[in-house]
């Protein structure tokens, strides 16, 4: 469905090729980094992949349906703890523990999503913030199992390369699922919920089922990322894995790239991870403040994200495949 308003179709096609090439090159570089990169580089890229997984999974529910979840970190945290507990207390091998992490997050997503997704607009946003905080406190209180505020120590293993590829696989799957969703009517149905939920329902779209499904899949990917993180870092505590800043980074990245698009979260997380790293090394003391200023700047100057910015200029086509 190529869209209107494109002054020069050839420029748009060229733009799309450049866009695709940049993404392909990035993907290629990311693939080979473990073979050549230092541990520092690997850790940095892995952090970026983790952010990308969170951004991509947040985009699936909030970018498409417009249900702004301010509690996305909860699913990452649930995943981390599910994997951590499975490994420490259950002696379960890591791959299975990570699968459990995803399943646990999806289950929690379904449980809380069913009531929470009945809430509209600001009530859902505030409600999910409350859910995330409540889960964080619950994990902190459940000390015998979770280690409480002191955190949970996993058996240390040097699994950086394996975790790196696992995280890459989660990112790739998230992007593929998003692509699949966006190019089928189901993606348009999700967008229709964002545009006008009543009109969606009245036209026969099964709103509740779709929202819940998107929410569960979104939680699944966030949970998988959390599980891989716990396995690799081998120490987790509630303050880190339930940090609200994880949610907001994911949101900022998606906004920057373009919410409700396929590659928006990828583009956004590459840019924001890069900028953030550059800021961090040069201005460690005012890093947080600069991130804040950066977010404000995105909101004010690029509210539709980079994808829409390029589309408005006719440099890339208005396609839901992007």
């Amino acid at each position: 469905m190529a869209g209107p308003l494109i002054a020069d179709q050839r420029a748009a096609a060229r733009g799309q090729r450049i866009y695709a090439m940049l993404l392909a090159v990035t993907a290629g570089v990311i693939m080979v980094i473990p073979a050549f990169g230092s541990n520092y580089t690997k850790t940095f890229v892995m952090q970026g992949l983790m952010s990308c997984a969170l951004a991509g999974s947040w985009n699936l529910i909030s970018g498409f349906t417009g249900y702004v979840s301010f509690g996305h970190a909860a699913f990452f945290g649930i995943g981390s703890y599910a994997a951590g507990i499975a490994i420490v207390h259950g002696g379960i091998p890591a791959p299975l523990a990570i699968a459990i992490a995803g399943a646990a997050a999806a289950a929690v997503g379904l449980t809380f999503g069913y009531p929470a997704l009945r809430l509209r607009g600001p009530y859902f946003a505030v409600g999910m913030l409350g859910v995330a905080e409540a889960i964080r406190v619950a994990v902190t209180v459940a000390e015998p199992v979770t280690g409480g505020g002191k955190g949970l120590v996993l058996p240390p293993e040097d699994v950086l390369d394996a975790a790196y590829y696992a995280m890459l696989a989660v990112v790739t799957t998230t992007v593929l699922v998003t692509y699949r969703v966006a190019t089928l009517p189901v993606g348009l149905r999700l967008l229709a919920i964002r545009e006008d939920e009543v009109a969606a329902e009245m036209n026969g779209i099964q709103v509740t089922r779709l929202k819940l499904g998107a929410f569960a899949v979104s939680a699944l990917f966030a949970g998988l990322a959390g599980g891989i993180y716990a396995w690799q870092i081998s120490y987790i505590d509630p303050g880190t894995v339930f940090a609200g800043s994880l949610t907001v980074r994911a949101i900022a990245m998606t906004m920057l790239g373009g919410q409700g698009t396929v590659f928006g979260p990828v583009v956004g997380s590459i840019l924001l991870s890069g900028i953030s790293e550059a800021l961090w090394t040069r201005f460690p003391f005012i890093h947080t403040a600069l991130s804040g200023v950066l977010i404000v700047a995105i909101v004010l100057f690029l509210p539709g994200g980079i994808t829409q910015f390029l589309q408005n200029r006719g440099w890339i086509p208005r396609s839901r495949r992007l």
Partner: peptide, 8 residues
């Protein structure tokens, strides 16, 4: 963003 900027 304002909140982060102020905290930072």
């Amino acid at each position: 963003g304002v909140s982060l900027a102020l905290t930072g």
